[in-house]
């Protein structure tokens, strides 16, 4: 047990140091750094405006208005920003596997996932994070949420982040261990999940809503948080916990299994 804790502490320290170094390296080109962040904010604003036209035309849809859409987009950006800021390196997994550079991760005395996660940074995700944070705070104030709702909301943010990580970061990229040149395919799978969480799917009812709460739980990355801020929904938080635990356990199990399929390419080069 003590050994396990020591290992975890070591992995976190290595992860923190590597990620910090990556960010410092990215920040050396000041102008590009700022342009990428601002560019991503403009990009996100366009997405919001595009969907706002729907609410402008139809008014309130099944209890959802333009404010809920802004809240949803803000929460989605915040989750996306947090997850990608901390683990975007995992998206390079197909490239590492295809080119054989995955060997270098296997030979180091540290956790594979933390090594992969900190192997790259995407500066533009800071833009997602900052814009998401601003819009989420605005929506919390707008919804006049009470303390209990905010606590439930925070719990759901953690649940949503883990689900999002499993579905867009880890699971799609595991395809690399089963087929060659899977990068674009992985991205497609990630997009599908992203769409289910980013579109105003909170207005949906019936069987499609059930699917989006369990099999492809995109509603937990924005829509459920909005619903919780508008009124207490203990049952949704409980369901979220179960769904998160199941999908996380499955993702990690599949990852361990997939890594065993990897065959070294004996890549020779500086590491």
């Amino acid at each position: 047990m003590v050994r396990l804790l020591q290992n975890i502490r070591h992995d976190i320290r290595v992860y923190r140091l590597t990620l910090g170094m990556q960010f410092r390296a990215a920040a050396t080109l000041r102008a590009a750094f700022v342009i990428q962040i601002v560019g991503m904010m403009l990009n996100n604003s366009a997405l919001i405006i595009a969907w706002l036209f729907l609410f402008n035309r139809f008014g309130t849809i099944n209890g959802w208005s333009a404010s809920e859409l802004v809240g949803l987009q803000g929460i989605n950006m915040l989750v996306f920003g947090m997850v990608m800021l901390l683990s975007v390196g995992i998206l390079d997994l197909p490239r590492h596997v295809d080119q054989g550079s995955f060997d270098s991760f296997l030979t180091r005395p540290s956790s594979l996932l933390t090594q992969l996660a900190s192997s790259n940074v995407d500066v533009s995700t800071i833009g997602d994070f900052l814009m998401g944070l601003g819009l989420t705070i605005w929506y919390i104030a707008h919804a006049h949420a009470n303390a209990t709702a905010i606590i439930l909301f925070l719990a759901l943010m953690l649940i949503g982040s883990v689900i999002f990580w499993s579905f867009t970061v880890l699971l799609p990229n595991l395809l690399a261990f089963y087929m060659f040149d899977s990068e674009r395919l992985s991205r497609y799978f990630g997009f599908v999940f992203l769409d289910t969480s980013m579109y105003p799917t909170g207005v949906l009812t019936g069987s499609l809503r059930t699917v989006l709460l369990t099999a492809v739980p995109g509603l937990f990355v924005g829509a459920v948080q909005v619903d919780v801020l508008r009124g207490l929904h203990w049952s949704l938080v409980l369901l979220g916990l179960i769904v998160m635990a199941l999908w996380l356990a499955f993702s990690l199990w599949l990852f361990r299994r997939a890594v065993r399929k990897y065959e070294s390419a004996n890549l020779v080069g500086a590491r």
């Binding site: 139809f58 008014g59 849809i61 099944n62 497609y188 769409d195 105003p200 799917t201 207005v203 009812t205």
Partner: peptide, 29 residues
């Protein structure tokens, strides 16, 4: 990749169709 690309478009359009169905059914506009 070709099949996956087409499948993603079908899913996207299906999702948007579901949202618009609710919009057309529930809105007074």
């Amino acid at each position: 990749r070709l099949v996956a690309g087409v499948a993603v478009s079908v899913i996207r359009v299906g999702l948007i169709a579901a949202i618009y169905k609710v919009a057309y059914a529930h809105s007074a506009a």
